[in-house]
Write a protein that binds this DNA or RNA. Structure first.
Length: 588
RNA sequence: GCCGUCCUAGCUCAAUGGUAGAGCUACAGUUUUGUAAACUGUGGGUUAUCGGUUCGAAUCCGAUGGACGGCUCCA
C-alpha cells in the first residue's frame, strides 16, 4: 500500500466516525460528544448518552442511519473560528467534553479551531475529511461493538460509551478482514486448549487460575527443558526460591510501591507481613548476598522457572494470557561493569537460539526502551548509570545489527532494556523477550564483590526473559501452530491404532518400545472402526498415526500416516524411531 | 473495578411464557473392523446460583457468581 492510500484510508475511517456521530445525533438528540478518531482497521467515537442505555441491537439502527447519510451525499463543510468563540459555543450547547478539549488547545496556544459540518451535525475537528459523505463506500464498514471507555482513558473520569466500527476501502477487504477474525477465532488458545485437552479452568478453583492436564504439561516440560538447555550453554545455573516473602524484600526493591494493591497478601500469625512474590529478581539477589563474592566469581548467572503472583484487576483476567499466577522463566546475571556488554550479547544470542528453533527469528524487530526523561521520579537508580546502560545497549544493537528503535518512556523500573517483537503465523504482534540492564537493584540490596584492588564494589544485574511466562507462551504457541505443534512439542507424538481387538496386545508391546525410545505415544484400542479412530487422531492433530494390524505384527514394517496427509507410507520400525528422534533433536 | 454481550447434559447446540430435546462423549451389548463417524440400548439436567413477577419461567425482572470483548489510539 502506498503512503497516499494509507492516508486516504485513515481519512476515510475518520470520516466514517463522523458519519456515525451524525447518525447517533439523529437517533439520540441529547447525546454529548467526546472524540472519534480513526484506528487500526476502523474507527470509534466516544459518546455520553446520559442515563440512556445503549445495547448491541442499537448498532443495527445506527448502521442504517449511517447508510442514509452516506446515500444523501452530504457535504463535509469545513469552517474555522476563533478559539474563544468556539469555547462559548460549546459551553452554550453543553458539550462539556468538547469544551475541555478546547481549553487544552487554548493552553497549547492555539488561536483558531476548525469545525466540520455534516448535515445537522457540526463537530470540532482537525480533519481532514472526505469532501462528500457519498464518497464513503457503503457496505465496507460495520459497527462491531459497544464498550465502556473512560474519558481520556483515566478511570477516575466518567465512563463514556464507545462504539467501535471497522472500515475498509472495499467490501471485499471488509469481508477478508472478518474472515481473518474467524480464522483467529479458530486458533484461539482457549478453544484449542479445551479441544486438545491442554488445560482447563474450574469455577471452584477460581478465575485466572489455569489447571494443566498431562498433555498441557508435556508441552510446558519440553519448553522448560529446551530453554534451560539453551541457557545452560551460556552459563546459567538453576536456583529455586519460595513463593512468598516478607514485604520488606519488595519494599527494598521498590516493587511493593510499583505493584501496590496488585500484591497478594498472605495471612501470618508470626508477626511478619508476607506477600506472594510479584517478581523473582529480589529473591535471587539474596542468594548472591549469601556469601562474599570475589571479582573472580563473576559473572554469576541464575535462572528459575517459578510462579509469581499478581492480583490483576478482575476484568483483566482471561484465558492463559492474563492470569493471577504465572510461571515465569526468569534469569539474572550479576557481573562487573566490564562484563555487562558481553552478558547482553550472550542473552541476545540465547533469544536468537531459542526463537530460531521456533522459526520466528528473522521475522522480528527490536526496540531500545529508555526512560521517560521528563519523569525521572518514576524510576529507581542514578541518572549517570541510566545513561551508561543506554549506551551499552545501543552499542550491542549496532554491533549485532539489531537496528533497535528508541522508545522513550518504555523502560523498566530499574533500567533501560532491549525488547524483541515477533509476528506470529496470522500476523499478530508478540512481544516477549527482553534484556534489561540494572545498576540500581544491587545497590538497593547492598550487593558487593571485592575487586582486584581490594575495594568492595557493586555488581551490575542484567535481567533477561526469553519466553516470558509459560502461560502466555503456551497460548502463543497454540495460536501460532493452530494446535498442530511440531513433533518435539506435541503432547502425543505417535498414535497407535489397533485394527481389531486381536491386535491389542501387540499394540501394547509396540507402545512400550516407543516409550523406551522416549517418544510420547498413545494407543487407541477402543472397540471402534479404524476410520473412527483415524478421525479422532486427526482431530487431535497428532503428527504420526499408525494403524497396526496383521501386517505389522508379522514384520518390522510400519505404515505411517503423517499429519496433514491422507496418504500413508511404509517405513522400517528402527528407521522410524531414528526419524522421530532426529526431529525431536532438531526441534522440528 | 467500570461498560457491553453471554451462561441449557462432560462437549457442540435446539426449545421465546405452556410436558427441557438432538448429535457427539460416557457406559452396556452386538460387531472384529486396514486409514475422516459401525449398529442397538442405557445413563446423563434444581436450564450457573439466589430471589421476584405469573395460574404457569430455561424464556420476563433484580441480585450474585463465572466466561468473552473493551476501558492505549486525543479536536
Amino acid at each position: 500500500m502506498t503512503k497516499k492510500n494509507t492516508i486516504d484510508l485513515e481519512m476515510m475511517r475518520h470520516s466514517f466516525s463522523h458519519v456515525m456521530a451524525a447518525a447517533v445525533l439523529k437517533l439520540w438528540p441529547d447525546v454529548k460528544f467526546a472524540i472519534g478518531p480513526a484506528i487500526d482497521n476502523g474507527f470509534y467515537y466516544d459518546f455520553d448518552f446520559g442515563d440512556k442505555k445503549i445495547g448491541e441491537d442499537d448498532l443495527v439502527k445506527i448502521e442504517k442511519e449511517m447508510e442514509k447519510i452516506i446515500k444523501a451525499d452530504l457535504k463535509f463543510e469545513r469552517s474555522e473560528i476563533k478559539i474563544d468563540e468556539a469555547l462559548a459555543k460549546e459551553k452554550k450547547s453543553g458539550q462539556v467534553y468538547k469544551e475541555e478539549l478546547i481549553l487544552d488547545l487554548v493552553k497549547e496556544g492555539e488561536k483558531n479551531v476548525s469545525y466540520y459540518k455534516l448535515g445537522d451535525f457540526e463537530d470540532l475537528c482537525r480533519g481532514p475529511h472526505v469532501a462528500l459523505s457519498g464518497e464513503l463506500p457503503v457496505g465496507s464498514f460495520k459497527l462491531t461493538k459497544i464498550a465502556g471507555a473512560y474519558w481520556r482513558g483515566d478511570e477516575k473520569n466518567k465512563m463514556l460509551t464507545r462504539i467501535y466500527g471497522v472500515a475498509f476501502a472495499t467490501k471485499k477487504e471488509l469481508e477478508d478482514y472478518l474472515q481473518m477474525l474467524e480464522e483467529a477465532e479458530k486458533r484461539d488458545h482457549r478453544k484449542l486448549g479445551k479441544e486438545l485437552d491442554l488445560f482447563c479452568f474450574s469455577e471452584l478453583v477460581g478465575p485466572g487460575l489455569p489447571l494443566y492436564t498431562p498433555k498441557g504439561m508435556a508441552i510446558i516440560d519440553e519448553l522448560k527443558k529446551h530453554i534451560e538447555q539453551v541457557c545452560r550453554n551460556y552459563g546459567f545455573e538453576k536456583v529455586m526460591t519460595p513463593h512468598f516473602a516478607k514485604i520488606d524484600l519488595y519494599e527494598t526493591s521498590g516493587h511493593a510501591k510499583k505493584f501496590g494493591d496488585e500484591l497478594f497478601h498472605v495471612y501470618s500469625d508470626k508477626g511478619h507481613k508476607f506477600v506472594m512474590k510479584p517478581v523473582q529478581c529480589p529473591h535471587q539477589t539474596q542468594i548472591y548476598a549469601s556469601k562474599i563474592r570475589s571479582y573472580r566469581d563473576l559473572p554469576i548467572r541464575y535462572m528459575e522457572s517459578e510462579r509469581q503472583y499478581r492480583a490483576e484487576k478482575s476484568g483483566e483476567v482471561g484465558g492463559l494470557s492474563r492470569v493471577y499466577a504465572i510461571t515465569v522463566e526468569d534469569g539474572h546475571t550479576f557481573c562487573r561493569p566490564d562484563q555487562v556488554k558481553d552478558e547482553i550479547i550472550g542473552m541476545v544470542n540465547i533469544i536468537k537460539d531459542f526463537y530460531s528453533a521456533l522459526g520466528l527469528w528473522g521475522n522480528h524487530w527490536v526496540s531500545l526502551s529508555v526512560r521517560d526523561y521528563d519523569h525521572p521520579e518514576k524510576y529507581i537508580g542514578e541518572s549517570a548509570d541510566w545513561d551508561l546502560c543506554e549506551k551499552m545497549l545501543q552499542e550491542v544493537s549496532d554491533e549485532m545489527g539489531l537496528k533497535a528503535k528508541r522508545c522513550e518512556g518504555e523502560a523498566a523500573l530499574y533500567g533501560p532494556k532491549l525488547d524483541f517483537m515477533f509476528r506470529d503465523a496470522i500476523g499478530k504482534e508478540i512481544q516477549i523477550p527482553t534484556v534489561q540492564v540494572d545498576f540500581a537493584t544491587p545497590k538497593k540490596f547492598n550487593l558487593h564483590y571485592t575487586d582486584k584492588d581490594g575495594v568492595e564494589k557493586s555488581p551490575v544485574m542484567v535481567h533477561r526473559a526469553i519466553l516470558g511466562s509459560y502461560e502466555r507462551f503456551l497460548a502463543l504457541l497454540i495460536e501460532h501452530f493452530a494446535g498442530a505443534f511440531p513433533v518435539w512439542l506435541s503432547p502425543v507424538q505417535v498414535k497407535l491404532i489397533a485394527v481389531s481387538e486381536k491386535h491389542n496386545d501387540f499394540v501394547q508391546k509396540l507402545a512400550d518400545e516407543f516409550k523406551k525410545e522416549n517418544i510420547r505415544v498413545e494407543l487407541d484400542i477402543s472397540d471402534e472402526t479404524v476410520g473412527n479412530k483415524i478421525r479422532k487422531a486427526v482431530a487431535e492433530k497428532v503428527p504420526y498415526m499408525l494403524v497396526i494390524g496383521d501386517k505389522e505384527a508379522s514384520s518390522d514394517k510400519l505404515v505411517v500416516r503423517d499429519r496433514g496427509s491422507k496418504d500413508t507410507r511404509e517405513i522400517n520400525k528402527e528407521e522410524f524411531f531414528i526419524e522421530i528422534k532426529d526431529k525431536i533433536v532438531k526441534k522440528e
